[in-house]
Design a protein around this nucleic acid. Structure first.
Length: 953
DNA sequence: AAGTAGACTTGAAATAAGCCCT
DNA sequence: AGGGCTTATTTCAAGTCTACTT
């Protein structure tokens, strides 16, 4: 979002360079949406289930769930459609996929960004709805068919098509029905209607300023070398593939019954010549964009960054090697870097650090830690500091341990268990079927879990209720079980009120009580929150065992609502040094096991009962174990940077491969690289249905030959991790486009797009390209690289601090958009924006006022006395100050608004090489605290210490 | 090759703490 | 001093990826 567009006329600098015209791959601001799955999908899934172990609850729960909606969904996916007329226009696919959402969205006060974005995309999509698509396809096909009629069983395809469209119709009908049946729900919620108004207002707004998207890095398709010369061949191949697949489908089913895309090389060859001509034809009528070719220079720039600015990349490339090589010997490097560290920062950090360190430990640590200090006696000032703050373990200055071994000594006190259940007073009643009922303690506890969530959307979901009820009944006594047979007849209201009251009371506790609680808590942290590892005391990340409760799966998780049972010592495996003080189990209990495995980093583990996953107690991100890994991660990403050009040109070559598997791999890798998609492992049926790159299904993408002014557009629309919606319209190379068409041929909506590919294959290949390379490295790499590019682009030397920070946030934001890191619009956002605006207006008024005064004063001063001149000066200064304040406010406004639906934290914490940020801070003299809060500084201490202003990723 | 277990990273939401105003 | 926001921290679910097993 450009500042100008958000009405911030005071801040144009950072954006002046933005190329707002360029729409790029990342630009699709995807919406959050945890939509319910379409009938289609469900059907498909059910089929799958039948094939495999069908678990009884799965299909039924999924289906049932459809009839419920969550208000959470409402809030979160306010994306697309504001008006019902718009909805009507939407493509069938969309309609039925997001139908629950549609309804929801009408209710929610959607964010204008989302709306805007989605609206436009939606419009576009609808304009070329399935009909058009088919039409286009047909046309193309016709041409081809001329030549290779015999290979095509168009009849079957048509059949397929028919089936699809008819099923779509079916969905549409259902959809209608569905929504009408939900009308009453809607009526129940007046506020929803209210928000519709707001939404409309927003529509207006959007119309007025149609270009408010945040600045995002542009992604240009990387040029393919020697492309022209080979173009013919490639297309030939594609067609060959196509024909082969047909043929194979006809008579080679034994090769692969599941895929329509099987074929083998030998088969191709004989047919090759036949298609040559059609190739030519196609080519001539289908002008291929050749623009990539003339961008040779861009070639070595990572896709992600290319977008933004090509001018800078060269210089950055040049520089890049220097820090790299330097980095390899961090030990040598550190002395200087250390010196560079700002004392101020150090002081603050250390002070803060101090207050959570238990005194005892500090003392102990002191002598331990002193050693490294002594080793580096360079700066007097620093040394002093380090004496005060001896607990900082500069592990990054030490030699790394040999492979696989994570520690040589580990001692801790074991985990802290959840407090035992405290029964609620008997005066707080539970009613069943209108009648008061005293529950057994066990049943009551579980009922309490549900009561606490009564206001939550979860309790409106069928799956949740079903799972809860089933598990609840399991803990009931015989009697209770006989009596309580219907959840609907249960009344938890009083219990809920009790819990609410309790938390209310907690909040309003007196100072003393609060202090006492705090002290107690600190005591606990002191005792259990730290461990000793290789001579140092380090913070543990999560030393408390997860308390019992109801499982809160995200999206449409089939297991939501199940009882997560209490974990006992008997469940816990302890891991520590043999020769350490082995933690004691609580009285009357014993550990499940005590092991001494020093090749893992966890201190304790247990298996959680809902998903049967192992849970761990591990160290805090500020620890050496985590930090070292983190550092290593970024080093891998930097290594990728060195070979990215080669890798890119390689996969571009592979788009033409004769082997389907390789082509799919190449196209998938292209997406992973260009769009920073996740790898996409296969998932079990008993998890929410979400996908990543390798697990994309046909239904998740849409191919548009032409969309607006762009050619070969792929529209992605799927639920990713945490059931967050990924929506993006991406122009791709023709070859990619054609390949996708090929991959989709003869497949149904629910079939895998990359049927010959999975993450194992992908990663195996990647590892051959570069040691340690996996799919997720691309995400790290592109994120960090984008940050660096954006920082270069956006930062102005002579901006003031606030402006610089804004630039940083924007760079950060570009990354968050790339990675699709979303958040729900914070409640009260609207209101707080309003307030800010008021403030700004007030400030403007006072500026006007001040201006007048200045004018007067200046006039007076002209022929006035010294005193009057002084007054004039004063007024001028005042005016100046006011203006600065205004700018600050405006920046704040812009920043906040741009951040409404974007979460910066995740990328900052997990994807951005902290040294880039640190270097930026040092270079532009921005205090590190403006960028990293205390926790973040702890986590990135290594980077803060080692990166100088010239660090380059 | 496919499936599984385990270990660890990534992620949004929930909750607590802090801050700013009245 | 306490209410209403923001921001920081915690929580724990959901991914990725490796190693092992079959």
């Amino acid at each position: 979002m450009d500042v100008e567009n958000s009405g911030n006329d005071g801040d144009s600098k950072p954006t002046k360079e933005h190329d707002t015209n360029h729409v790029n791959g990342v630009n699709g601001y995807s919406d959050k949406h945890k939509s319910h799955k379409s009938e289609h999908k469900d059907k498909h899934r059910d089929k799958d289930k039948d094939r495999s172990k069908s678990k009884d609850h799965k299909s039924s729960s999924r289906d049932k769930d459809k009839h419920h909606s969550s208000s959470k969904d409402k809030d979160r996916h306010s994306s697309s459609h504001k008006s019902s007329s718009k909805d009507k226009d939407r493509s069938d696919r969309d309609k039925n996929r997001h139908r629950d959402k549609d309804r929801d969205e009408k209710k929610s006060s959607s964010s204008k960004d989302k709306d805007r974005d989605h609206k436009s995309s939606q419009d576009k999509v609808k304009s070329s709805s399935s009909k058009d698509r088919d039409h286009e396809k047909d046309k193309e096909r016709r041409d081809k068919d001329k030549e290779k009629d015999k290979y095509k069983h168009s009849s079957s395809r048509d059949k397929d098509k028919d089936r699809h469209s008819s099923s779509k119709d079916k969905y549409r009908d259902k959809d209608k029905h569905h929504s009408s049946s939900k009308d009453k729900d809607r009526k129940d919620k007046d506020k929803d209607r209210k928000s519709e108004k707001e939404k409309n207002a927003e529509v207006e707004k959007i119309k007025q300023d149609p270009e408010p998207l945040p600045q995002i890095p542009k992604f240009e398709v990387p040029p393919v070398k020697e492309e022209n010369s080979t173009d013919d061949d490639e297309d030939k191949l594609v067609i060959k593939d196509e024909s082969m697949s047909q043929e194979e489908a006809d008579n080679d089913q034994n090769v692969s019954a599941t895929s329509s895309c099987d074929y083998n090389l030998s088969q191709f060859k004989k047919d090759e010549s036949q298609f040559e001509q059609s190739e030519e034809e196609e080519k001539s009528q289908d002008p291929i964009k050749t623009e990539p070719q003339d961008e040779e220079s861009e070639e070595d720039v990572p896709l992600a960054a290319r977008a933004s600015n090509t001018k800078r990349k060269i210089e950055s490339d040049d520089e890049e090697d220097i820090p790299l090589s330097a980095r390899k010997k961090p030990k040598l490097e550190k002395p200087e870097k250390k010196k560079k560290k700002k004392k101020r920062d150090l002081d603050e950090e250390e002070e803060e650090y101090n207050d959570y360190k238990p005194e005892k430990k500090i003392k102990k640590e002191k002598h331990i830690k002193k050693e490294p200090v002594k080793e580096s006696p360079k700066k007097g000032g620093k040394k002093k500091k380090e004496e005060e703050e001896p607990e900082v373990w500069k592990w990054w200055e030490e030699e790394k341990k040999e492979d696989g071994v994570k520690w040589t000594f580990l001692e801790h006190k074991g985990p802290v268990f959840a407090p035992p259940y405290e029964p609620i007073p008997t005066s707080v009643k539970f009613y069943y079927d209108g009648k008061e009922l005293l529950l057994s303690e066990q049943a009551e506890e579980v009922a309490g879990f549900y009561a606490k969530m009564l206001d939550h959307d979860y309790t409106t979901k069928e799956v949740f209720n079903k799972n809860f009820f089933k598990d609840w009944r399991k803990v009931m006594t015989e009697k209770e079980r006989a009596l309580i047979v219907d959840l609907k007849k249960c009344n938890f209201k009083k219990m809920q009120a009790y819990f609410l009251d309790l938390s209310e009371k907690n909040k309003s506790k007196s100072k003393e009580e609060k202090l006492a609680l705090k002290a107690k808590n600190e005591e606990m942290v002191k005792e259990y929150g730290f461990c000793k590892i290789d001579g140092h005391t380090e913070k543990i990340g999560n030393f408390r065992i997860e308390p019992p409760g109801l499982f809160r799966g995200r999206g449409e998780h089939p297991k939501m609502g199940k009882l997560k049972r209490r974990v006992e010592a008997e469940d816990i495996i302890i891991n520590c040094s043999k020769d350490s003080n082995i933690p004691k189990a609580p009285p009357g209990h014993k550990w499940k096991e005590v092991r001494h495995v020093n090749t893992v980093t966890w201190l304790a583990s247990w298996t959680e009962n809902v998903q049967n996953q192992v849970k761990y107690i591990m160290l805090n991100p500020s620890s050496k174990l985590k930090g070292e890994k983190d550092w290593q991660k970024y080093e891998t990403a930097r290594r990728l940077h060195k070979s990215i050009n080669k890798i890119r040109s390689e996969y571009q070559q592979d788009w033409k491969s004769k082997e389907m598997k390789i082509r799919q791999r190449a196209v998938a890798l292209y997406f992973i690289d260009k769009l920073a998609l996740r790898a996409g492992n296969e998932k079990d049926e008993d998890q929410a249905d979400t996908v990543g790159c390798c697990s994309l299904r046909v239904e998740h993408i849409q191919l548009l030959e032409k969309k607006d002014d762009k050619e070969y557009v792929v529209v992605f629309d799927f639920l990713g991790k945490d059931s967050i919606r990924y929506y993006n319209e991406v122009p791709v190379e023709k070859r990619v486009f054609k390949n996708l068409q090929l991959f989709m041929e003869n497949k149904k909506e629910g079939d895998d797009l990359f049927d010959r590919l999975n993450t194992t294959i992908m990663n195996k290949h990647l590892n051959e390209l570069m040691e340690g390379l996996t799919a997720k490295v691309f995400r790290t790499y592109n994120a960090s690289w984008t940050l660096q590019q954006q920082l270069d682009l956006l930062t102005n030397e002579d901006d003031n601090l606030a402006e610089k920070v804004l630039s940083y946030n924007r760079a950060n934001r570009a990354v968050a958009i790339l990675c699709n890191h979303q958040r729900s619009v914070p409640k009260g956002h609207e209101k707080s924006m309003e307030k800010l605006k008021e403030k700004i207006d007030a400030k403007r008024d006072s500026i006007k006022d001040a201006e007048r005064q200045v004018k007067d004063a200046v006039r007076d001063a002209k022929h006035g006395s010294v005193k009057e001149k002084l007054i004039a000066d004063k007024k001028k200064k005042m005016l100046q100050r006011l203006k600065e304040q205004l700018v600050k406010l405006e920046i704040q406004e812009t920043d906040r608004d741009e951040n409404k639906t974007i979460a910066l934290g995740t990328s900052k914490l997990n994807y951005l090489d902290p040294r880039i940020s640190v270097a930026w801070c040092k270079k532009y003299d921005v205090p590190i605290e403006k960028i990293y809060n205390k926790t973040q500084r702890d986590k990135f201490r290594w980077a803060i210490d080692m990166a100088g202003p010239d660090y380059r990723f």
